[in-house]
Design a protein around this nucleic acid. Structure first.
Lengths: 192, 192
DNA sequence: TGGTACATGTAACATGTTACATGATTTG
DNA sequence: CAAATCATGTAACATGTTACATGTACCA
């Protein structure tokens, strides 16, 4: 499944509710594996049925009850087994914007160029977020435990990826400039 | 859908059968959008129903009949509209190996490291394929038509991507070496 | 005669997305 | 008083994967 294992990985941090997991998927692990809350709850149900996680209802004052899920020994074993057997081939890329690049003469180049500018921003933002995290967590204290090394490596991959994207966007934006009517990015936005 | 538009993009090259499209998806456009033959045939059916492609049965001596699909004017228009309206946000990454890196202390590090070595090969192979294509198609003849510029840009993104992956794998392989029993890659493979 | 390429499909299943539903507490 | 956060879920739909099915021709 993939999502199942991603959840088990999250639970190695300690017991979490579905809601907690959702937040983790929106931030740290979500950079490499995305999930919405619906699928998280569905997956937790089957993980529980399979005995890979234990559930405990926790009453909270005011707020609704939460179910705290904990990794069981079987869950730990499954995680380890997955790390040996599971897929490790490069995942296939799926990028609609790149598909457009294959028939640039049949699409709206100005629109595509603007999309590339938007992506530049998105990737630049990601990159600075990653740099921030690196500064906060891995500054000079070269944490040499396995867990930190692994996570730092993940972060470094993310930084490489975003950096290349930003550079590529710059390259693409200038390459496409001659094909766009009046170099729209240099035009002042018209006042209403 | 995404796949629909990828097929329309392929058909801007000229009429193709489902089988032809499958081969295209296995090579060029498949680097950015993957599809198996089942989904291609299903998508072609609905594209045809929607009038975005025209179908023509072609009898062949010996071989089974093939259905040649051609882009219609409506298909061309749909493609153009999609290039304006369609999604262009960075697609979410999904990579099980990266998920493993989040709990390196709970998995089999030796296995993960070997997987990284395998990925290094896969990415290096891709990179050299891309370099080959660049040499053959875009060597010095700086083709300045839109179509070529777009495809060359796509290729360049692919090269950046694969190059970073190869470098990252090298970094990861050495970072993890101290955590693996007897630096397994330096051991001679035991004779049976 | 056994494998590969050509050529097209169905069916079942697994996964992922979108919309809807509920209900309390805190913050502006 | 409206919106956001906490917290969990169902249902319908869209998409993607795996397995199976069929049949010719060519090559070794």
């Amino acid at each position: 499944m993939g999502l199942r294992e991603a959840i088990l990985v999250c639970l190695t941090e300690g017991p979490q509710s579905g809601y907690d997991l959702k937040k983790t998927f929106d931030t740290s692990i979500g950079f490499f594996w995305h999930a919405d809350h619906q699928r998280i709850y569905r997956a937790l149900k089957t993980l529980h049925e399979d005995g890979l996680v234990a559930a405990e209802a926790v009453a909270q004052s005011g707020k609704p009850d939460k179910k705290l899920y904990t990794l069981t020994d079987a869950g730990r074993a499954a995680l380890r087994q997955w790390s040996i057997d599971g897929p490790s081939a490069p995942p296939s890329v799926k990028d609609e914007m790149m598909v457009r690049l294959y028939a640039l003469d049949e699409v709206d180049v100005g629109a595509v160029r603007k999309q590339i500018m938007a992506r530049r921003s998105a990737h630049a933002e990601r990159l600075s977020l990653y740099r921030h995290i690196e500064n906060v967590r891995y500054r000079e204290k070269n944490a040499d435990d396995l867990r930190s090394v692994g996570r730092h490596l993940g972060l470094k991959l993310g930084m490489r990826y975003e950096r290349e994207w930003v550079d590529w966007c710059d390259e693409a934006i200038s390459s496409l400039a001659p094909f766009v009517p009046q170099s729209e990015d240099e035009r002042e936005p018209a006042d209403a």
